[in-house]
């Protein structure tokens, strides 16, 4: 379970946009999305590889805690990455992005990487928010953008991994202070040398929360 870095993510966005489903979909593929079953989870972890380095992602869903200001505040601060999710079939969830973003910018550390995600891209027929609108919003606010479907697993992998890549690049550039754990980044326990060899088997044998 050795990793070079651990990145903490949070997932934010209105209720019902599919945050916890995205999370489960990414962290545990054994739960195949099927039509008559939707499920999500509020916490998950998974190992990924970037640039030959094992990186552990720890993702915390903030759902249900919006009523406590102290909680949202703290979550933002402790995260290196945030997935800001809206539902492409519900315009209101898109309209609330500004508020979410303001909150995020206000409370997070300035280096936090924010990825904008238009979820439920499988429901093309009920689409209310055009892809271009999402792109434009992302461009205007300096976010990375992607449309995903937790249902078909389309782009889910990419969303989480691209965010991680961005964080990783920032680490390489020295933007993040990795020795400060408050930034949501932790250096692995034995980040000396040994990460390549035994992290390699993709954690399939690792515990359930891991990948497979």
């Amino acid at each position: 379970m050795a990793y070079a870095y651990l990145f903490k993510y949070i997932i934010i966005g209105d209720t019902g946009v599919g945050k916890s489903c995205l999370l489960l979909q990414f962290t545990d593929k054994r739960f195949q999305p099927v039509h008559d079953l939707t499920m999500g989870v509020e916490f998950g972890a998974r190992m990924i590889t970037i640039d030959g380095k094992q990186i552990k992602l720890q993702i915390w869903d903030t759902a249900g805690q919006e009523s406590f200001r102290s909680i949202t505040r703290s979550y933002y601060r402790g995260a290196a990455g945030a997935l800001l999710v809206y539902d492409i079939t519900r315009r209101d969830t898109f309209n609330h992005l500004t508020t979410w973003l303001e909150d995020a910018r206000q409370h997070s550390n300035s280096n936090m990487v924010i990825m904008l995600i238009g979820n439920k891209s499988d429901l093309e027929s009920r689409r209310e928010v055009k892809k271009e609108e999402g792109e434009a919003f992302a461009r205007e606010h300096g976010l990375i953008f992607m449309e995903t479907s937790a249902k078909t697993a389309s782009n889910v992998e990419e969303a989480f991994i691209n965010t991680a890549k961005e964080i990783y690049e920032k680490i390489q550039e020295g933007v993040f202070d990795i020795n400060n754990e408050a930034n949501g980044i932790k250096i692995g326990p034995q980040h000396a040398a040994t990460n390549a060899s035994h992290g390699g088997n993709q954690g399939g044998q690792q515990a359930g929360g891991g990948c497979c």
């Binding site: 209720t15 019902g16 079953l37 499920m39």
Partner: peptide, 17 residues
């Protein structure tokens, strides 16, 4: 939070599932 993601299941029917 209850059933918050149910709405978008879309009532399809599983196959092999």
């Amino acid at each position: 939070m209850f059933g918050r993601s149910r709405s978008w299941v879309g009532g399809g029917h599983g196959k092999s599932s």
